[in-house]
Design a protein around this nucleic acid. Structure first.
Lengths: 110, 110
DNA sequence: TATACTAACTTACATAAAGTAACTTAATAA
DNA sequence: TTATTAAGTTACTTTATGTAAGTTAGTATA
């Protein structure tokens, strides 16, 4: 593949957000720590992909995983400092969407 | 697919940014109007996908396309008002990347 | 007149990522 | 012994992306 002329840090940051579901997972966790099944139903992602994304985000130091050995086991996901620092981006995107996205224009194919 | 509990506007906005290349194209166009081949080499995208993404972005009213019937033809892409309004998001992501992304950690597989 | 050149695509095909549904694991309760 | 539950994982299909070659239109050059 061709090499870009962009700042590698910015490119890396964008590659995180431009992976499907990643942004919504982070957005969802901004409202506080929560469990796998809560995130799953809140954003409508499948277990297979949520599992994959959470592993990636943990590896990148954006998400933290805490295990509570109850029955059945409880696992809570939350944002690290690095993850929480993404809040301004989400807030700006929220603002933009409220100004520029019309509800009517959204495809309702599902 | 399951339905999410998120604001449809925000979800739609995120779906734009979380499509591969879209964010980089918008970022690139923030530095001013430019031609197909310029964007192509600046961000390292293939012609096939750049063409596809620019069409989508035009349809969404984020990008404008101007034709100059010279020889060979010149076509200039630029951001609309809606597209320019995404600048704060890009600036915040730039800030975040400079604080939290280490250059060493970026995979150099290409 | 025939061939070359250029930007901006498009097509055809291979590979990678995402969607879907069924299955697994471990601890404990009925 | 069977059932229940959260948190995944596996197997398989469909969609998206990567890659390279081909197309189009208007000149310019041999």
């Amino acid at each position: 593949m061709k090499k870009s002329q962009l700042c590698p840090r910015f490119e890396e940051a964008m590659s995180i957000l431009s992976k499907r579901w990643t942004g919504l997972i982070i957005y969802q966790l901004l409202s506080g720590k929560q469990r796998f099944c809560t995130i799953e139903s809140a954003i409508g992602i499948s277990g297979r992909l949520l599992s994959e994304r959470l592993k990636d985000l943990e590896k990148q130091g954006i998400v933290k995983r805490d295990i509570f050995p109850e029955t059945p086991v409880r696992i809570e996901y939350s944002l690290t400092e690095k993850g929480l620092a993404l809040e301004p981006i989400m807030k700006e995107l929220e603002k933009w969407s409220q100004t520029w996205i019309e509800t009517e224009a959204i495809s309702t194919s599902e």
